[in-house]
């Protein structure tokens, strides 16, 4: 038996918004420790890794490990039926071929349940090594979304260069070129608005704008985003999900051949 209850169903709505443009379907792996998802986009350029810890749920029970193959368009339809303030419970029997979503209004006067068929998905799991990154940049997530949106007007690629002084995002194309520099914030009253840089070594890497823009769909999940970079390895874009977990996107760099 699997049962997970979340008072704020809006968190789950936001998680779905953050993955549904990048992935068509995905396997939600449920275990005693929580719900995990790992999936590559169809072009195998990026990888999404989602972790929702069991202790972040209001109630959580998972007697046996369960892999739920889910069509994300179908799940989006169901999550649209939930009010933002609704309490959500996901429920499945062991070896089930369906999962049930239950939504309760805050005053408990409206209860609805939706059963969704599960899919059998062939899933490839990739081993992601623990890495010490040369540069770790934390910045407001809305600022990052704005930068990705603005630069994608200029070209298909963004160069992210990080030094101790700051981080520079650049793009160039037919209409011209663009550079956005962010310095580390000196004095911050509000932590959410800070830009901080931890640098061991300078790094400059090129990435596809299109994918960065997909990642920024996670912006409503967190006021801050963390970018981790090392030479010639994938960029990590991480958004914390409240007290419950995180979503990480890995993006393969573009390399001069």
């Amino acid at each position: 038996m699997f049962e997970a209850r979340l008072v704020q169903s809006s968190i789950f709505k936001k998680v779905l918004e953050a993955i549904k443009e990048l992935l068509n379907e995905a396997t939600f792996d449920c275990s005693d420790s929580g719900i995990q998802l790992q999936a590559m986009d169809s072009s195998h350029v990026s990888l999404v890794s989602l972790n929702l810890r069991s202790d972040g749920f209001d109630q959580y029970r998972c007697d046996r490990n369960l892999s739920m193959g889910i069509n994300l368009a179908s799940m989006t339809k169901i999550m649209k039926c939930a009010g933002n303030d609704d309490i959500m419970t996901m429920k499945a029997q062991d070896n089930a071929d369906s999962v049930t979503f239950m939504f309760e209004s805050p005053n408990q006067e409206k209860m609805s349940d939706y059963e969704m068929k599960l899919m059998n998905l062939d899933q490839e799991h990739l081993g992601i090594p623990e890495t010490d990154y040369s540069c770790v940049i934390k910045l407001p997530s809305a600022e990052f979304a704005r930068i990705c949106r603005d630069l994608s007007q200029f070209g298909e690629s963004v160069v992210i260069s990080c030094t101790k002084e700051g981080v520079k995002f650049s793009a160039a194309g037919d209409i011209g070129s663009a550079n956005i520099k962010l310095a580390q914030t000196a004095n911050v009253d509000k932590e959410d608005e800070a830009v901080s840089i931890e640098m061991q070594e300078k790094v400059s890497l090129t990435f596809a704008c299109r994918y960065l823009n997909y990642f920024t769909k996670a912006t409503p999940l967190s006021p801050q985003v963390c970018l981790s970079m090392s030479a010639e390895v994938p960029l990590v874009v991480e958004y914390k999900i409240g007290e419950i977990g995180h979503i990480r996107y890995y993006l393969a760099p573009k390399i001069e051949e």
Binding site: L126, Y250, A252, I255
Partner: peptide
């Protein structure tokens, strides 16, 4: 020219 690499190249399939 820069070419897009694939994510499989960096992480091993388990």
């Amino acid at each position: 020219r820069t070419n897009q690499t694939s994510i499989d190249r960096f992480f091993q399939t388990l």
